[in-house]
Design a binder for these strands. Structure first.
Lengths: 113, 113
DNA sequence: CCTATGTGCAACCACTTGATTGCATGCTAC
DNA sequence: GTAGCATGCAATCAAGTGGTTGCACATAGG
């Protein structure tokens, strides 16, 4: 399978795209590309492309309703990315804890001749 | 100020770069670009460029020691990105909670003629 | 001093990407 | 049916990006 986590990060690594995502987060009923385009400084087609990137990375889902297509934030779309970040933070914390315990059991070693 | 969060996501939105970051996470003593390059499938200069991107986004710090430069993961480098993701997840949860409370106070409405 | 190793810089290349414009298609409502 | 709005598709373009190679510079160690 393709690397989902990288795709999610890449999708959020663009200001316009993250703006769209935030916009959708605030709209439980979803929004159409056209509606998003009027608020954004770029064309509708640019928005559509961004929405496709967001959809491909699993951050957003599209639902057709008659002649319009509404986009919604997907549930748990950011879960994998989020847990990856958490894993990294935990690794860091473990390292700090280890250093601190070493310092406790062997105090003031730094500077002894 | 420049948008830090977007930079962090963009930096992690590349497989090679995230691999380097993971490599550094496992090395408390840091690693040089040359050392990282032997394990990676790309050239040293490519690694250096990636490290510069990671450094510019605040995920990594460089420390010169004699003739070599060691790279370390920065503490709390992912904090802003992480909290942004958390904020989004909370917004989602609030929406779900609201829907559920509505469903509770007005049960089985869906389907009534 | 001289050599080996690690780093820095610059040019260069192919490919991707964010964005645009123009036009075709599809659905709704009158 | 047909006018109007929303979407889809394609070509196009400039800028960015990941990657390479080649060479210059700096430093540690005999």
């Amino acid at each position: 399978m393709k690397d989902t986590i990288t795709d999610v990060f890449a999708a959020l690594g663009d200001a316009t795209r993250r703006g769209i995502y935030e916009q959708l987060l605030g709209n439980p009923d979803g929004q159409t590309a056209t509606a998003l385009a009027v608020a954004a400084p770029v064309s509708r087609q640019a928005i559509v492309k961004h929405l496709q990137v967001l959809a491909r990375s699993g951050l957003v889902v599209a639902r057709r309703d008659g002649r319009e297509v509404r986009y919604f934030v997907a549930p748990n779309g950011t879960a994998s990315a989020s847990s990856w970040l958490l894993k990294g933070a935990e690794a860091w914390d473990r390292r700090v804890a280890k250093l601190e315990s070493q310092a406790r059991s062997n105090p003031r070693r730094r500077g002894t001749p």
